[in-house]
Write a protein that binds this DNA or RNA. Structure first.
Lengths: 150, 150
DNA sequence: TTCTTTGCAAATGCTTTGCACCCAG
DNA sequence: CTGGGTGCAAAGCATTTGCAAAGAA
């Protein structure tokens, strides 16, 4: 909870996607630009439907197929998170602005998400790697909470 | 990773379900018994389909609807976990034998899961509660790993 | 008897796919 | 030009639902 590394600027965000596209030998398209710009606008997490509506409202129509396709690419690129907090809720996505932060506090009432870092989690991962002779590729921590005053 | 509390016996497991059923004013049925017994047999996680096949093989047919229904009950009762490690994989379930252990190491190759406890995670949760004036209801930690020798 | 559960079939709804047309490189 | 991208409609498929029959309390 101590380390608070800086958020990525929109330009950095875009260029990370460009690097990814280049690696994969994929093309730049106006749809991809529009989607990336839209995602960056969202301050909180959003569903695919909400993203679609946002794009439509802003006079940029993208088909569902294209959106699914590119959401999957962005997930693979590590530029967005996918949450599915409850079984019946739709999956939510959120731009990933801090690198290597995979710890989240999720408010089940307001559905707000706070990202945080903590050295102790890094320590635990290190110890796991030693103890089991494995490489931890990624991790995920979610604390589900509610406000004390309700 | 230090605390290693004991696993629940099958009888304890069953009686925890019975308590849950009583609380919810739900009935005992032979299907529920069969499902619980089957789940306890599995040493590793399983898909709903695998559970269904296992039951069928052991001469106890249960319909998909019933299985879904009861899997959801068991989830609410906290007697099984639900994992969905990758987007395209089916969700996996696993009996929850230790109370209050929500930390997992997941081997992406062998798909093995190790449960563990760690005081530092409890500490972090405590600090989160203080800092944001919230109550953490539940948490989940997953470390995705692979073997070093491959 | 009364309320719950089961099982079948059908519906639901998110996501993927096939394919023709279009566009970036 | 040529391989990848987009959009539409259709398919896929895990899960849920409606309802009649069966079972628990």
């Amino acid at each position: 909870m101590e380390k608070e590394n800086k958020n990525l600027s929109f330009n950095d965000y875009v260029s990370r996607f460009n690097v990814f596209l280049k690696q994969r030998k994929l093309s730049h398209t106006s749809e991809r630009n529009a989607i990336l710009r839209a995602i960056y606008q969202f301050d909180k997490h959003f569903t695919l439907e909400e993203l679609l509506n946002y794009l439509k409202k802003n006079k940029y129509y993208v088909s569902r197929s294209t959106l699914y396709n590119n959401i999957n690419l962005l997930l693979e690129a590590g530029l967005i998170y996918k949450y599915q907090f409850s079984n019946q809720d739709l999956p939510c996505y959120e731009k990933c602005l801090k690198e290597n932060v995979h710890n989240h506090i999720y408010n089940i009432k307001t559905q707000e998400v706070i990202e945080f870092s903590d050295q102790r989690i890094e320590d635990i991962i290190h110890e796991i790697e030693q103890k089991y002779n494995i490489k931890v590729l990624q991790h995920n921590f979610v604390a589900y909470c509610e406000d004390n005053n309700n």
